[in-house]
Amino acid sequence: MKKTILYILTGIVFFGAGFSLFAQQDIKVIVQKDMALTEIDRNTFQRIYLGKNKFWKDGSAIVAVHLRGGPAHEVFLKDFINRTDSKFRSYWNWIVFTGRGVPLRSFENEAELIQYVAETPGAIGYVSSETNTDNVKVISVN
């Protein structure tokens, strides 16, 4: 009986972890090709999109951009930012209307976002995992 419970619990953990990994891989996080960055931790990634981290380690400015909607944006909010779309918008409205920062640049489609990231030093963004990202560098989020 104990073994059965152990197998079930192990199965749940691995299923959960696998599902989580699968969900995380639904988007690709991208930066400009010239950047030395190859990976970023999840906490830093979240802090960047909440306006708490504004500088890379070398002191240069972070230019975070996001999509206005779509499946990749939903994965981004749910799995990385842990906020609903309305709460994410409300949070940034609070920053803008209290003068605590400038809003993040947003894009209607992934092609425009990729082009902007490719051309902008310090930029970071995300697109869905199937999208062609030859012009930019894909980094991992741990």
Partner: peptide, 17 residues
């Protein structure tokens, strides 16, 4: 209300409402 903000340099920002 109406507000304007401008990022003048990576470290310097100005704005008003």
């Amino acid at each position: 209300a109406i507000n304007f903000t401008a990022q003048l340099t990576p470290k310097l920002r100005t704005g008003l409402q």
